[in-house]
Amino acid sequence: MADLLSHVLVAYAAFTVASWQADWLTDEWIAVGTGGAAIPDLIKVEIVVGSGTIETVLGVPFDVSAVGTLGGVLLVAGAIALLFGERRYRAYCLLVAGGCSALVLDGMRKYADGRAGDWLYPVPWNPPSPNLYVSSDSTVLGVVLFVALVVVTLNRRVFGGSE
C-alpha cells in the first residue's frame, strides 16, 4: 500500500481538476470520490484483527486483502453507496472511481518480479508494474503534497472553488 495520505491527496487533486469541467462535481461529491480512495486501505483492519484469527473463528480460508482489489472495491463501494439514499448511483460511481485511482497508484509500485500482484482480482491477470516507487519513500508524499497544493491554489484563484 502506498500510504493512505497519498491515495487521498491524489484522488482529491484528480476530482478537483475534473470538477473544472464537470459542473455537477461539487465539493460534496469530490469528498465522496476522495473517500472512495480510502476503500483499499480498509485492509489495514488486519492490524487489529488478523485474517488468521478470522480463519480460526470461521473455520474457512479467509483473507481481508480481497478488499484491496478491484472486486473488493466494487462491492465495498456498493455497501457504502446504500447510505446515500436516492443519490446512491452517483455515490457508487464516484466511490469506485476513487477506489480504482488508489489501486492504480499501488499498481505502479516496485515489485521484485516486475508484476504488480493481483489487484485486478477477480480478473485473473497480474499486470506488469512500471516499478516507479516504494511506499515508504517520503519523496512520493512530497511530490503528491506539492501537486495537491498547486491544484487547491488553482482551484481557489482561477476556478473560483471554495476549498
Partner: peptide, 23 residues
C-alpha cells in the same frame, strides 16, 4: 447481503490464492 458477499469474496480470494500466485 453485500457484507455477506464481501465475506465470500475474502474466502474465495484466500482459497484460490495458489492459482493466482505464480510462486
Amino acid at each position: 447481503l453485500l457484507v455477506g458477499v464481501i465475506g465470500g469474496l475474502c474466502v474465495h480470494y484466500e482459497a484460490t490464492e495458489d492459482q493466482r500466485d505464480p510462486y
